[in-house]
Design a protein around this nucleic acid. Sequence first.
DNA 1: GAAAAAATCAATCACTTGATTGAATCAGTC
DNA 2: GACTGATTCAATCAAGTGATTGATTTTTTC
Lengths: 232, 232
Amino acid sequence: MAQTGSRAVDEKAASAGESGEAKTRILAAAERLFAEHGYSGVSLRSIMAEAEVNTASIHYYFRHKEGLLRAIFEMRVTPMNEERQERLAALERDRSEGAPEVGAVLRAFIEPAIRRTRAKGGQAFNRISALCSVDPDPAVRQVVFDSYDTVSRRFTALLRKACPHLDDEEFYWRQHCIYGSMMYMRTDNGRVAYLLGDRGAGHSEVALQQLLVFLTAGMAAPGANTAGVAGA
Amino acid sequence: MAQTGSRAVDEKAASAGESGEAKTRILAAAERLFAEHGYSGVSLRSIMAEAEVNTASIHYYFRHKEGLLRAIFEMRVTPMNEERQERLAALERDRSEGAPEVGAVLRAFIEPAIRRTRAKGGQAFNRISALCSVDPDPAVRQVVFDSYDTVSRRFTALLRKACPHLDDEEFYWRQHCIYGSMMYMRTDNGRVAYLLGDRGAGHSEVALQQLLVFLTAGMAAPGANTAGVAGA
DNA sequence: GAAAAAATCAATCACTTGATTGAATCAGTC
DNA sequence: GACTGATTCAATCAAGTGATTGATTTTTTC
């Protein structure tokens, strides 16, 4: 019970001494517990116990339970969104002629997410993000929305241009398959770990590759109004 | 508040008079509320209020909250599993020569689920099933497992035979994409309803078709060791 | 080293949760 | 009409929930 509080959160935690400051310890404990039991399945008391802080500390630093969740999302999502924005911007720039490639757009969006599985605590947040994405609680939904909406719109717009062979309805249905696949993979109920056997390190690479092959093929499949051959 | 208790559950509820018996009303209310707020987001008290029954009734009929969830699953899943078993068995019979077709296997598994969206309360249960599929609560996971495991294994075995172009690892990764897509579609956070506009009736047909196109293409995509052309 | 700010603490509030009890009511049967 | 099993009822339990308070300690700042 004593050595569980030293889980690092990000670079901040890595530089912090022995057990880190209280705020950092709270974030680390909350992240681990949210990933394991979901947002509503974790009480503030259990977080405080694992972080070894006082009852009022969470409210002091984050006001609400929701504020704590939001802080976790901001900590993790901000750098990822920056990377996504850069890569999407690069794709928008590069396409001097015609539409961007489906696979490239998908990779620009998915890779920054899957890659962070390798970072310390990244796997935990992956699962939090996936669980919260389908959480019925409006407060949780709002946090997810605020975190992903802007970049998600840009991704959608670019992917749309990469799929001229689909009409709007087809495109949006297939995009839901993309989100579903991503989410399910990030949920990781131990299935993924089982599949990988011992080579847990290569996890993200394999997952990314397999996911991209599947989704690219699905998006590239001809639509109802597709006359000739589909792209690439 | 008074007319909300008459939501039908299935044929049993349809034949029940005015507001139905208590047990049926409880099931109907629970199904609606679980679909809206998730399993953990609903208290027994709110169910009892909507069903207009006494506090102890739920424990009388279902023992636990978990027993209530299990009853809902059994009520809905049993007939669906029968249909799935029949269709999978037909596919196993028909393949006199070679492997079954990917699309046919997928359809046999997915259609019985999506189709039931049209039944009264079917949409609600679809969402319950999807939410529970990623619920971190072990009790909930057990209910889902008990409901789907047997048929799911049979589906997996048959789909595997339809994908000789994939090695085991590729196959299982892609299968996760299938489950993810199905789950996300059944979650239905209002996105699907939005996409369909006013023609809510055709919902299941369109969803099924789009889903099948995407998943079939994804599974049919060549694997790393695929030499020639992938199956039609 | 005193004043101010930040952080930590124990104690508790008001409320909700799932579950249980034992009495009261109903329905059907002989 | 009494007996019996199936329901329904009000009342309540023990435990857990997020949140708040006000005092105390630690750290920073001048």
